[in-house]
Lab assay of single mutants.
Amino acid sequence: TPAEQLLSKCPWKEYKSDSGKPYYYNSQTKESRWAKPKELEDLEGYQNTIV
């Protein structure tokens, strides 16, 4: 779907730490963070409005 294509192009991906806590990693900037990036939230919100 178009929304899945947008998400696949987003540099932010969700991973799980050893303790199972989700964290987010940007493959372009090599940045990681615990809080979900706004860019990823926006894309997921867009995906939910299409489905």
Rank of each mutant, 00 (worst) to 15 (best):
S17T: 12
Y46V: 14
L40R: 04
S8P: 13
K30V: 00
L7G: 15
W34I: 13
S32T: 14
K13Q: 14
K36F: 03
E44W: 04
K9M: 04
S27H: 01
Q47E: 12
E31M: 07
V51D: 15
G45S: 13
E39H: 03
A3M: 15
T49D: 13
S19T: 10
S27F: 05
T29F: 00
K16V: 12
K38N: 05
T1I: 10
S27N: 10
K36P: 05
E31C: 04
Q47A: 08
K16P: 05
Y46R: 12
T29Y: 01
K9D: 13
P22G: 01
K38G: 07
S19K: 12
S19Y: 05
E14M: 12
G45K: 15
N48H: 07
W34E: 13
K38I: 05
K16R: 08
R33V: 13
T29W: 00
D18Q: 08
E39K: 02
A3S: 12
L40W: 01
W34V: 15
L40D: 02
Y23Q: 03
C10S: 11
K36T: 06
Y15S: 02
Q5K: 14
Q28G: 08
Y23S: 04
P37G: 03
N48P: 09
E44L: 07
D18C: 06
V51R: 15
E39S: 10
T49G: 13
S8M: 03
Q5R: 11
E4I: 05
P37R: 01
P37S: 00
V51I: 11
G20A: 00
E14L: 06
K13A: 13
S19R: 07
Y25P: 02
K9P: 14
S32F: 13
K36L: 04
S8Q: 07
C10Y: 08
Y15V: 14
K13N: 10
N26Y: 00
E39G: 05
Q5H: 11
K38T: 07
P22C: 07
R33M: 14
S27W: 02
L6R: 15
E14N: 02
Q28E: 05
G20K: 03
R33E: 02
K21Y: 02
L40K: 03
T29E: 04
I50L: 13
E31L: 01
E4T: 08
E31A: 04
L43I: 12
D42E: 08
Y23P: 02
K30W: 00
P2A: 10
K30N: 09
Y24E: 02
W12P: 09
T49K: 15
L43E: 14
E31Y: 01
I50R: 12
Q28L: 11
S17D: 12
E41D: 10
E41V: 10
Y23W: 10
D42V: 07
L43R: 12
C10F: 10
Q5M: 09
L6Q: 15
D18W: 03
E14T: 01
K30H: 10
D18I: 12
S32I: 13
I50Y: 13
W34C: 11
P37W: 00
Q5E: 12
Y24D: 03
Q28I: 10
A3D: 14
K36Y: 03
G20T: 03
S27I: 14
K9Y: 13
S8I: 02
E31D: 05
Y46K: 14
K9Q: 13
Y23V: 10
S8A: 14
G45Q: 09
L40Y: 08
L7Y: 03
N48W: 00
P11D: 01
S8E: 14
K16N: 14
D42R: 12
P37C: 01
W34K: 14
E44C: 06
E44P: 08
